[in-house]
Design a protein around this nucleic acid. Structure first.
Length: 437
DNA sequence: TCTGGGGTCCTAGGACCC
DNA sequence: TCTGGGGTCCTAGGACCC
């Protein structure tokens, strides 16, 4: 197809929420406006989101362990919250729906980012960007940023600029720059600032004499493909304004793999406890599998010590078991997961303190696509145990029932810690916000 | 002594993303 | 004491086939 000046009106906008988790915490707690906020990972481990005010107080706050900065937070009045994923997911849905009204096509890229296709001049789209910002903020309370370019990679690049340049008012159209200005901007950015390039590839590029985004844009695409992959070659082309990465308009209805993994709030040192953990994780991931209507052909289990734990010998192991027949039955998974223990722990490791574990289901396919021959039906298949469990869980809550070692009533000592949780104001009747006149 | 060649399918692992 | 969780895509290389 002819890609001439006529197509210059076709643009991609990346719309991302400003400090999304921190902004969500503010939506139903207006008194937090203007205050520094930090949101913690699971187990209240480390900082995964921070409001602009908190980042100004400490530009390196992201990723810091909470225990290291707790006193500092109190000193500076930083409000700290546990992650409230139900609240964030629900607000994300509202934001994405609003954004979709402005675009001919939309890809919801993550919980706080969306790519949309827009058409218009630099001036028109800059104005539209401001309108989107205004509307989303007014309807949801969440501030967003609009970054526009000819390709997804350039829109991502624009968002780097938007974050650095307050004068753009959170709307950045990369098309406003002359080619000389753009050269200077790209020459000032290391390659690792762009989408798709992290430290490993960055190092390899540096070794080849490619230091900046401009160097990469001007590199030979064939050479890049040969030395790296087609992925990086696409990045080079996209930096030149040639769209290579399509907008994914349909959300994929079923995942290709499902993972349930968690760090423990306290270290695990006995085989019995680990068996209980794996049994429970296997049941939780199987519930997700049934929720999306799939069967799995393979179960993997992994365990690992903490990478920062100097008081324990290091150990990590990963074992995969194929299932004879694809299944969604929790008992089948629990049994399969328990079979891996001799391989995970081939020898007794005294003093090893395990920090996390996970169960992954792969080789997924839609349930009902292939009916297994009755001859090969596993023992528990067809008794609908999974459905029954799901129904009881739905009515009575997550702790009401479990199978085998996963069936304890009290939460175990290693279960996730979330001590600073805000209300799930949009999804739970008993946690609604109260308004008094 | 001599021991093909080309093709497809599948999977594990690497790298990246938010 | 205390450092997240859940995904995707691509490629190399082995298995297997004729």
């Amino acid at each position: 197809m002819f890609e001439g000046p006529a197509d210059a009106r076709n643009q991609i906008a990346l719309i991302d929420c400003v400090s999304f988790y921190a902004s969500c915490e503010r939506v139903f707690e207006p008194k937090l406006a203007g205050r520094p906020i930090a949101v913690l990972s699971n187990n209240d481990g480390c900082v995964v989101a921070a409001s602009p005010e908190a980042k100004r107080l400490d530009p390196s706050i992201m990723g810091k362990p909470y225990f290291q900065i707790k006193a500092w937070c109190q000193l500076h009045g930083v409000v700290v919250r546990s992650s409230n994923y139900e609240l964030y997911g629900s607000l994300s849905d509202r934001v994405m729906t609003l954004i979709g009204r402005y675009a001919s096509a939309q890809e919801v890229y993550s919980i706080d980012e969306s790519f949309v296709a827009l058409r218009g001049s630099v001036e028109e789209l800059t104005a539209l960007g401001q309108e989107i910002r205004h509307t989303v903020l007014q309807h949801t309370g969440v501030p967003v940023r609009v970054s526009i370019g000819r390709t997804k990679t350039l829109a991502k690049l624009a968002s780097v600029g938007a974050k650095k340049d307050p004068s753009c008012n959170d709307v950045m159209h990369i098309g406003k720059y002359s080619s000389e200005q753009l050269d200077r901007i790209m020459a000032s950015m290391p390659t690792t600032e762009i989408w798709g390039i992290a430290s490993r590839t960055g190092k390899k590029l540096t070794a080849m004499g490619i230091h900046t985004v401009k160097d990469l844009r001007d590199a030979d695409p064939k050479l890049i493909r040969k030395k790296f992959s087609v992925v990086l070659q696409r990045t080079v082309m996209e930096l030149r304004g040639v769209p290579c990465i399509e907008l994914e308009k349909q959300p994929r209805e079923q995942k290709d793999q499902l993972i349930y993994s968690r760090s423990f709030s306290k270290k695990i040192q006995t085989l019995d406890e680990m068996k209980q953990v794996i049994s429970l994780y296997a049941q939780r991931v199987s519930a997700r599998l049934r929720a999306q209507g799939s069967l799995a052909g393979q179960v993997s289990v992994w365990v690992a010590t903490g990478w920062a734990d100097t008081g324990s010998p290091r150990h990590s192991a990963h074992v995969t078991v194929p299932l004879g027949t694809p299944s969604d039955d929790p008992i089948t998974f629990t049994k399969a997961a328990s079979r891996v223990f001799p391989d995970l722990f081939p020898e007794y490791l005294p003093g090893v303190r395990y920090a996390r574990a996970g169960v992954t289901l792969t080789d997924l396919r839609p349930a009902g696509a292939i009916q297994p021959l009755a001859l090969f039906q596993p023992e528990f298949e067809g008794r609908e145990i999974g459905k029954t469990l799901d129904e009881i869980t739905r009515r009575m809550g997550g702790e009401a029932i479990g199978v085998g070692l996963g069936g304890f009533k009290q939460p175990a000592g290693w279960e996730m810690k979330r001590e600073l949780l805000s209300k799930r104001a949009t999804t739970h009747w008993d946690e609604l916000v109260e308004v008094r006149a």
